[in-house]
Each structure stands twice: as structure tokens, then as C-alpha cells.
Design a binder for these strands. Structure first.
Lengths: 194, 194
DNA sequence: CCGCTATTAGCACTTGGTACTAATACGAGT
DNA sequence: ACTCGTATTAGTACCAAGTGCTAATAGCGG
């Protein structure tokens, strides 16, 4: 009987992990044991009751929602900015930013950090990217911190254009270089493109 | 008293919206009315009980989690692919992809779709972007569907390089053009960059 | 003072449990 | 055959956070 118990407990764990919304009664029917046995199993496995499980899932989601808004908005935290001149942001590469296969950060995250910084450094907050040239020089992996430095290198107020150069590095080594031609949107015009 | 009731119910709605984890008892203390009054208010406002509220939040998160994994992995759904030749993906621009101010899609989403497609079209799944040139020709707004078409235009198997051209359009109008120089990673080499 | 709404109180019942005690089954060891 | 130990089952009291229902009370408007 000992083997049966362990197997059941393993299956129980799996069941609850894949569907945390299952009640003891449903589990008791599924495994054809009494509700009490399910309860004992949960005790031994330190699995909390249905309501607590649901609550944990809900709380997690709730916190995620609150967190995701501001972080997502900037893509990299801006730590220094002098409008129309230069700006610096940092971006910590996490497991969700990399390819599963080789753990190398996906290009669009580097681009997102650099492009967002280019948008931010423009004095007008309504700036759009028109053109861009990028070089991905070295792979970046999870756990590394990318420091992006943006510099406004050319201004052309008549045409509402400006050029921004962004250099991103990890531990002093340059990993990415991008130049961005930006269009400044004035209030009325619904101009070019981002 | 009628005014007081309406005000309380409005405040009650707000309270529960900002914190769905609050019990009737806590609310009764907060608004200095009986628990029964809170219950009546909830009935009139059709607000479900604590456990149901929590469950809804949890279920939502749960579904989101399941959904987010595959979608996030590709950035745009690939609808046609012929390896080493061409590929097509679609990406529906949603409110979360645009600038709040002018509702124009952020550049990195267009880049992400195009870059991911360039990676996908490469036969080796371990492809990294080395260089890239982009043009953002027209603004894209929330609700529009971007169709990206990638074409492998140059192959150089000796150097493990290839060029991919991606053209993205909305309703037949080109909104974005990008060229990507890709590096094919072989099993051993931990080569260039993405 | 009547009527009306709002509020409060109280009770039985529900779900999905916890905590605890007790009974029963069943095989292993001696 | 008897006993030990583990596993399982049953049953009871209790809890949180409610629903559903009935009834009492407060306060004011006319």
C-alpha cells in the first residue's frame, strides 16, 4: 500500500498544479479515496486548501498588474536625462527576455530599450522614429545589465527632425549601437511614424 | 438619506474595485454601517461576494498565463512559412502597444514582429540578428492589423550569414520596411549577436 | 399619525474547508 | 494467532464568509 500512497500523492500534486481550482471532494472522486485521505495527503504535502490556493493566484496576478504598467511603459529604467541632449537607462535582462535555446537576449528588447530612450530624450514627448540603423555586436544573456546611452547628435528644427545615437553596453563592453532619425510631432500635425 | 446611500454605494464600488480582497465586515467598519447594509448594497450593485471576486481575478490570471506564453514567444502569429525562403505573420495592434498620447504604435512592436519573423524564417532556429536598417513609413494605430512579409534575399552559407527583407503593411499600404543581416548559429559556435 | 425607504438584527443554511478523535483494514514480524 | 504500524475512513465540532429570508426599528415627508 505504501507505493500506492506515494503515487497518489504525486498525482495529487500534479492535479492541483495543473488545476488549482479543484476541491477535495472532486479529488476524492478522481482518486477513489475518501475526502479525509485527500486532506491527509494535502497536509503531508503542505498543499493549502482551495481558497488559499485561489487567493495566492489572485494576489500574484494583482501584484503583477500593478507592477507591469510603469515598467512596460518605459522599457528600461531611465536613470539620467537632459532633454534634447542625452539620456541613460538601464535594463536588466531576465529569463523571459532570452531565447530558450541559447539564453541570448532577443533583439527586440535591446531595440525597445534604445528606441524608448531615443523617444524620451526628445524634448517633445510626441516623438516618432522614422528611420533606424542597428548593429548587434555581442550577445547579451540573462542576468546581465544593459546600460544604454543616448546622445542627440543632429538637430533640424525646421524639418522637425533630429538624430539620436544610442550605445548600449554591458560591463563597459559595447553590445549594441543604433542611430535613430526622430520626427517631432507638433500639436496639430499627425505626421510620420513610430 | 437617499443621497447618503448613493454616495456610499459609489464609494463601495470604488473600494471593491481598488481592493477586491476586502470582506463585508471590513467594509461595514469602513463605512460605519451594518454588515447587512453592505450586503444589500452589493445586491443592488450586483457585486459578487469576496470569494467569487477572488476567483474571477484568479481565473483571469490563469487564462492569461496560459495564453501569454506562446503569443509572447513569437510576437505576431506566423500564418505562412517556407523555411529559408519567406514567411508571413500578422500582428493585431492593441491599446497596450500604442503611446497613450497619440495612439500610435510604439516602434519596438513593429520591430519585434519583423525581427522575430526574420529569426523564424531562417532554417536554423538559432539565428541572431547582426545588423538592421529600418524605416517607419506610416503610423500604425490601435485596432489595425499589421501583415509582415519576410523574404530571404541573400545567402552566404560559408560565413553563416543571410539577409532578410521584411515589409510590413496595413490594408495594402506599406508601414514599415526592415532589412536584417542574420547570423546562423551552429551547435558549437556561440557567435555573434541577436 | 401614516407610509415609505433605509437600516439593522437574527436565524437557518451553504461551501469548503480545519482540528481532532475514533474506528477499521491489512500486511509484516515474531 | 497476536500484536504493531501504517493507511484509510468516519464522524463530530467548529470556522469564515457568505446567501436567503423574515422581522423589527429609525427617520423623515406629507
Amino acid at each position: 500500500m505504501r507505493r500506492l500512497k506515494k503515487e497518489r500523492q504525486q498525482a495529487l500534486k500534479d492535479s492541483i498544479r495543473t488545476n488549482p481550482f479543484v476541491t477535495d471532494e472532486e479529488l476524492s472522486a478522481k482518486f477513489d479515496v475518501s475526502v479525509q485521505t485527500i486532506r491527509l495527503d494535502r497536509m503531508e504535502l503542505a498543499i493549502p486548501e482551495l481558497r488559499e490556493r485561489i487567493k495566492h493566484v489572485a494576489v500574484k496576478t494583482y501584484e503583477d498588474e500593478v507592477k507591469s504598467l510603469p515598467i512596460d511603459e518605459v522599457f528600461g529604467e531611465i536613470i539620467d536625462i537632459e532633454l534634447d541632449e542625452r539620456a541613460i537607462s538601464i535594463f536588466d535582462v531576465k529569463p523571459e527576455h532570452v531565447f530558450q535555446r541559447n539564453k541570448i537576449a532577443r533583439g527586440h528588447h535591446l531595440f525597445a530599450q534604445a528606441n524608448s530612450l531615443a523617444v524620451a530624450v526628445m524634448n517633445d514627448e510626441l516623438a516618432l522614429t522614422v528611420k533606424s540603423e542597428l548593429q548587434f555586436l555581442r550577445p547579451v544573456t540573462a542576468g546581465q545589465r544593459i546600460v544604454a546611452k543616448a546622445q542627440v547628435v543632429e538637430r533640424n528644427p525646421e524639418k522637425n527632425r533630429a538624430h539620436v545615437k544610442v550605445v548600449s553596453s554591458v560591463d563597459q563592453a559595447t553590445v549594441f549601437v543604433g542611430t535613430f532619425e526622430m520626427y517631432r510631432m507638433t500639436e496639430q500635425s499627425e505626421g510620420d511614424e513610430q
